[in-house]
Simulated scan of single mutants.
Amino acid sequence: MDELKLVVASPFKKKATSSLSIKDFEFALSFDLKWMAPDLASKVRDKAISSRLLRLEGDRLIPSFAVDKIEIPHGFRPSGNVFAEKSPIEELITMISAKSGKSEKETIAGINTLQERFGDLVDIEIAALILAKEKGCDIEGIYQKVYDKFMDND
C-alpha cells in the first residue's frame, strides 16, 4: 500500500467523512494525529492533489479512492519518505491507480503490456503517459516533467 495513500486516508477515516476542508485535513494530520508540523501537512495536501489522490472541489478536499477500503495498520506513522519527491513514473502509476481503481501492481502490469505492444520502442514513461490519457487522467502537470526528462538527455 502506498504510504501517501495511507496518510491521506487517515483524516477521512478518523472523522468518518467523505470530504474535509483544507483546514480540517491539515489540522487532523498536525494536531489530531500528531504526525507532522502544519507546514508539512500543507505539503502533503499539495502532493496528494498533484498525485491525484485528492481533488479540490470548492474549499473541500475529496479523496479519489475508496477510503473505506483502506486498512490503516495499527500504530501506523508516516516515514520521511512521504515528503520525498516522486519520479514522473511513480506519479503516473499513482495517478492511473487512483483513476482506475486498480492496485499499483496491476497498473504497472498494464503499463508494461502497453510498452510491449509498441515493441519496446517507447520508454516506460511514455507508455505510462499513454495509459494515463486512455484512463482519463489529467496528464497536463506531469507531461512537462516527462518531456523535460527526455530533453535533458539530448
Rank of each mutant, 00 (worst) to 15 (best):
M1F: 04
D2K: 05
D2P: 15
E3S: 13
L4V: 13
V7Y: 08
V8D: 02
P11K: 00
F12E: 02
K13T: 07
K15W: 07
K15M: 10
A16R: 10
T17R: 09
T17A: 15
S19L: 02
S19T: 11
L20Q: 02
L20W: 03
I22W: 01
F25V: 08
A28D: 13
L29S: 05
L29R: 02
D32N: 12
L33S: 03
W35M: 03
A37K: 11
A37P: 00
P38I: 11
D39G: 01
K43E: 15
K43Q: 13
V44C: 08
V44W: 10
K47I: 07
K47E: 03
S51R: 09
S51G: 15
L53K: 04
L56N: 02
L56T: 02
L56P: 03
E57Q: 09
E57T: 12
E57Y: 04
G58R: 09
G58T: 11
G58L: 08
G58F: 11
D59H: 07
D59W: 01
R60K: 15
I62S: 03
P63I: 02
P63G: 09
P63T: 06
F65Q: 08
F65G: 08
F65L: 06
F65I: 09
A66K: 14
D68Q: 12
I70T: 11
I70A: 06
E71V: 14
H74C: 04
H74M: 12
R77K: 15
P78K: 01
P78E: 00
G80P: 11
N81K: 15
V82G: 14
F83K: 00
F83W: 09
A84V: 09
K86Y: 12
K86R: 13
S87K: 12
I93Q: 07
M95L: 10
M95H: 03
I96F: 05
I96M: 05
I96P: 15
S97M: 05
S97P: 14
K99N: 04
K99E: 01
K102H: 10
K102D: 07
K102S: 10
K102L: 13
E104R: 13
E104A: 05
K105Q: 14
E106F: 04
I108W: 02
A109T: 12
A109L: 12
A109F: 08
G110D: 13
G110E: 13
G110A: 08
G110H: 04
L114Q: 06
L114M: 12
L114G: 11
Q115W: 03
Q115H: 06
L121I: 02
D123E: 10
A127E: 06
A128M: 11
I130G: 07
A132M: 06
K135Y: 00
G136K: 10
G136A: 04
G136N: 07
C137G: 12
C137S: 09
D138C: 03
G141W: 01
I142H: 05
Q144D: 04
V146Q: 03
Y147R: 15
K149Y: 10
M151A: 06
M151T: 14
N153D: 14
D154P: 04
